[in-house]
Computed example of a mutant assay.
Amino acid sequence: MSAFPPPDMSDPWIRRFRPRPEAVVRLVCFPHAGGSASYYHPLAQSPTLPTDSEVLAVQYPGRQDRRRERLLDDIGELADLITDALGPFDDRPLAFFGHSMGAVLAYEVAQRLRERTGKQPCRLFVSGRRAPSRFRRGTVHLLDDTELAAELRRAGGTDPRFLDDEELLAEIIPVVRNDYRAVELYRWNPSPPLSCPITALVGDRDPQAPLDEVEAWQQHTEGPFDLKVFAGGHFYLNTHQQGVTEVISKALADSAQQRATARGNAR
């Protein structure tokens, strides 16, 4: 029998695709703008992930099974609500992985977790996103529907079949516009650096995340920092799923070793 009682899974914010009640670490995944929890289903099923880890995926309101709920276009409000939803899951270490807008949310939730509980993620993975301290004015949310659909094609993160279907596209556009508004209106509130390790991942041809601005994530932690560069654009991880999973797996194993060492030194 597990030493940990299973958390309440009725909260609409969290998806648990492959429950592992005896996992010693939970990897919380934050989707990109316009994305949903199901984007991380392949990661949750990957045999490469350590067997003592469990993937939890955040489901933002206004999409998929939450499509009737009000969209939220404020990063701070989203981060507050996600932090609340993670409360039942902090009975063991949490690691965060966020891509693009999800990286911003992962960082903001990490900050709130520290403020509320004194805890931090055992590791923060930030993908396809410049550091919060590197501001760049964004105007994608101001594009008309046709221009926004063209931007989605260029970014490459949306199944082209959805973009070619007028009815599906009509459902997607408001969600994408909302999320772009949220992340483009986001402004970093200068905060002390985290102490957890940060691993940044990026495509070498990502116009939204130049390498020098991604490297600036190092300034947001007092802990170790490393940068992993893959061939590709903003959605490099779609074609490098195995490589990304290997990076995550090694980093989680390193964090587990560090915790074990710290426990040993404390005795």
Rank of each mutant, 00 (worst) to 15 (best):
A3Y: 09
D8P: 01
P12Y: 05
P12F: 13
W13E: 08
I14G: 00
F17C: 09
P19N: 13
P21S: 13
E22K: 11
A23S: 08
V25M: 08
V28S: 03
V28R: 02
C29D: 07
F30P: 13
A33S: 07
G34L: 08
S36I: 03
Y40D: 07
L49F: 01
L49N: 04
P50H: 00
E54D: 11
V58F: 08
Q59L: 10
Q59T: 07
R70P: 06
L71F: 03
L71D: 10
D74Y: 07
L78S: 04
A79D: 04
L81C: 15
L86Y: 10
R92H: 03
F96T: 00
G98D: 00
H99M: 08
S100V: 03
M101D: 01
A106S: 06
Y107P: 13
Y107N: 04
Q120N: 04
Q120A: 09
P121K: 01
R123M: 01
R129Y: 11
R130T: 00
R136H: 14
R136N: 14
R136P: 05
R136G: 13
R137Q: 15
T139D: 12
V140G: 06
R154F: 09
A155H: 10
T158P: 06
D164N: 05
D164S: 09
L169C: 10
R181Y: 06
A182R: 01
L185F: 07
L185K: 11
W188Q: 05
N189L: 14
N189H: 15
P192G: 12
S195R: 10
S195Q: 15
P197S: 04
T199Y: 00
L201S: 11
Q208E: 15
Q208H: 15
Q208C: 12
L211Q: 15
V214R: 04
E215R: 06
T221E: 05
P224I: 02
K228I: 13
G233W: 03
L237M: 08
L237T: 02
T245F: 13
E246Y: 09
E246D: 13
I248S: 07
K250V: 14
A251R: 13
Q257W: 01
Q257D: 14
Q258T: 07
A260M: 10
T261I: 12
R263G: 15
A266W: 10
